[in-house]
Simulated scan of single mutants.
Amino acid sequence: MNRLLLAAGALVLAAVPALAHPVTVKSCNREVTFDAAPKRAISNDVNLTEMMLALKLQDRMVGYTGVSGWKTLDERLREGVKQLPELAEKYPTKEVLLNADADFYFAGWNYGMKVGGEVTPETLMPLGIKVYELTESCIHIMAKGKPTMEDMFVDLLNLGRIFGVEERAEALVQGYRNELAEITARIKGAERRPVRVFVYDSGEEKPFTSGRYGIPTAMIEAAGGVNIVDDVEKSWTEISWEPVIDRNPEVVVIVNYGEVTADQKIAFMKSNPAFRNVDAVKDDRFVVLEYVEATPGPRNIETIRRLARSFHAEAM
Rank of each mutant, 00 (worst) to 15 (best):
E75N: 11
E221I: 04
Y105S: 03
R30V: 00
A15Y: 01
Y257S: 05
A7H: 10
M125N: 05
L156R: 02
S68W: 00
I162Y: 13
L13M: 12
E167W: 04
R76N: 14
G175Y: 02
L97S: 00
P296T: 12
T123V: 02
G145T: 07
Y200M: 07
F34K: 00
F208H: 10
E75K: 12
P298I: 13
A313G: 15
F198Q: 07
L19R: 14
L77F: 13
R212H: 06
D279N: 10
A100V: 14
M52K: 08
L6P: 02
Y200K: 11
F311P: 09
G63L: 05
R30K: 08
Q83S: 12
F198G: 06
A313V: 05
K94F: 01
Y176R: 15
Q83V: 10
I301S: 05
I266K: 11
R186I: 01
I220P: 08
D59C: 11
S137A: 07
P207E: 01
D155P: 04
Y291A: 08
E233W: 00
V199I: 14
I301A: 03
E250P: 09
V281G: 14
L98P: 00
R76P: 04
E170G: 07
D283P: 14
T148C: 11
I228W: 03
P126S: 03
E166K: 14
E136G: 10
I129R: 03
A143M: 13
P194I: 00
T209A: 14
A218T: 02
Q264C: 08
K130S: 05
A143Y: 04
E238P: 00
E302D: 15
R306E: 14
N248H: 14
D279G: 04
V253P: 08
G112A: 13
V197K: 06
A190T: 05
R186D: 09
R306S: 15
T237L: 03
G225S: 03
G297Y: 08
V154N: 06
L73F: 08
E233R: 01
V292L: 01
K144Y: 00
D151V: 07
